[in-house]
Design a protein around this nucleic acid. Structure first.
Lengths: 277, 277
DNA sequence: TCAGAAATGGAATGAATATTCTAATCGCAG
DNA sequence: CTGCGATTAGAATATTCATTCCATTTCTGA
């Protein structure tokens, strides 16, 4: 009733409820048991819904929140909601908050701190990658590459390193690769020979490089099987693609690490090689 | 507008949004992009909040929901909430178990298994990186780059993606960069203008690219301050370097992920930018 | 350039919601 | 059995919210 409950984590709240459980009145104990058993209902439901499911009148729910030191049900609900967002987005929220705060502090500006920040960012990007990429897509992608005579790679601007890396690995594995980099003329000319017998791997993140957005539909229209690696289903290289890998939470261009797409393309290339035997 | 949207999963909704995106009007497209980027905000926020964060009037949000075939915002929100609920149920343990089982199942030859192997390799590479790089070296490196007029980047063969990535980030930050890639002539000519006022970042791993081994000593001899990123103190770009970053345990060329050097160069670039203010 | 159509923004509206208030009930000591 | 304080339930209330409506602006095609 007296504690400051301003910023409380879900686990702390669980502890507080368990601790005070004995001291609560009958109805309030009943509610305590319900909310610990059904935290998701509390997070997303209204007072009336929670009241009905736990078999108490709505006002009792509000009294329960008051007894725990919250200003009302809405305030308590925030804690239950934080549990949901923590479960679904281990990277996103924490990353934004951390970057914001560290960016301004003196500590965050020292190169060593910057490095450790990028390392942990890369870690979470890898976790997200392994969760969001499904076996079906990878199988489809390697199948396309296996049948391709020549493999065309389209990745410009910030995505160029990914394309060059994939080119390097594929060539090491003996595949015929055409890297569309615009050197010595237009990309159009470089890609002119691509047919339905070949394959295209396109990589593009915001802001989508104009040439990529322009060339991609042309190759799709010519019937070239296409694997897209991008950060949004709305990107210009999604429509018409045979396989799409979506890599979420790419930070702004200067801050993105490319760790996730680099890993992905390498897994594609090596997986292709292993499956071929 | 016509589909029955009764029971729709979050992934299905994503697909539907992406599919109709082009057919939507300007404002609605803007909202489509926002909701795909901030699904959590949509799940937990009110119409007014979502409207404000996405920079549109509340009525537009409702029209967006209608355009997708929902009866209103509340109906659409249910789908976004289902994502939160799904994310919290199979918690940490289940995810780990899934990775473990996938790793062993039916050989490690399936593409999905290959990906998870690269991911965990990359994870450990990042840990090693943050342990082996010391603040003193990073400070020295950023100091060199801060004083440099032009920054020359030398990374060929398998290291080329690292060089292009560093070039991209440095240019985004407004630095003058010369990427030594041998396009349109010899690398020697490209590097001819480098002086003691400039700086060189050299990246090379086994087997050391011949051109790199040849060019590096020349620039050192001309007194160009040099930062080397390599995998052994015996590599040809160590002797004479002002700062050396040694990244150990690099696998054979085709299998290496470049995750560690990518992170390192980015931390260098951003650290340089933050320290400059 | 103009007319018609589509889209947009903002205010108005009515529903839904959390909260408060009060009368009734319960528990309990004397 | 009685009276008092704590507790409760449900109605009343004030607030917040989603939705609708309409005047205005912005596209589109001739």
């Amino acid at each position: 009733m007296n504690k400051a409950q301003g910023a409380m984590s879900y686990d702390e709240l669980r502890g507080a409820i368990a601790q005070r459980h004995r001291a609560l009145s009958g109805r309030l104990q009943q509610i305590a048991e319900f909310v610990l058993d059904h935290p998701t209902d509390v997070a997303l439901g209204t007072v009336a819904e929670v009241a009905q499911r736990s078999g108490v009148p709505p006002s009792a729910i509000v009294r329960f929140a008051h007894a725990l030191g919250f200003g009302g049900f809405t305030e308590m609900q925030q804690v239950f909601r934080s549990r949901l967002v923590a479960g679904v987005a281990p990277s996103y929220k924490a990353r934004l908050a951390r970057m914001k705060s560290e960016e301004k502090s003196v500590l965050g500006r020292q190169p060593a701190a910057v490095l450790s920040r990028f390392v942990s960012e890369a870690q979470s990007a890898l976790v997200t990658l392994s969760q969001s990429v499904h076996a079906r897509e990878l199988d489809a992608a390697t199948a396309i590459l296996a049948k391709a005579r020549d493999i065309y790679l389209l990745g410009l601007g910030g995505s160029f390193p990914v394309a060059t890396h994939l080119a390097y690995v594929l060539r090491k594995l003996g595949r015929r690769v055409v890297l569309l980099d615009g050197t010595g003329g237009s990309i159009h000319e470089q890609s002119h020979a691509a047919t339905t017998e070949d394959a295209l791997v396109a990589i593009s993140f915001r802001n989508y490089y104009p040439d990529t957005a322009r060339l991609f539909p042309e190759l799709v229209a010519r019937g070239v099987p296409t694997i897209s690696i991008t950060d949004s289903l709305l990107s210009p290289i999604v429509e018409g693609a045979s396989v799409v890998f979506e890599i979420q939470d790419m930070p702004e261009p200067a801050l993105r690490t490319l760790v996730a797409p680099m890993c992905l393309v390498q897994a594609m290339a090596i997986g292709l090689d292993l499956a071929a035997d």
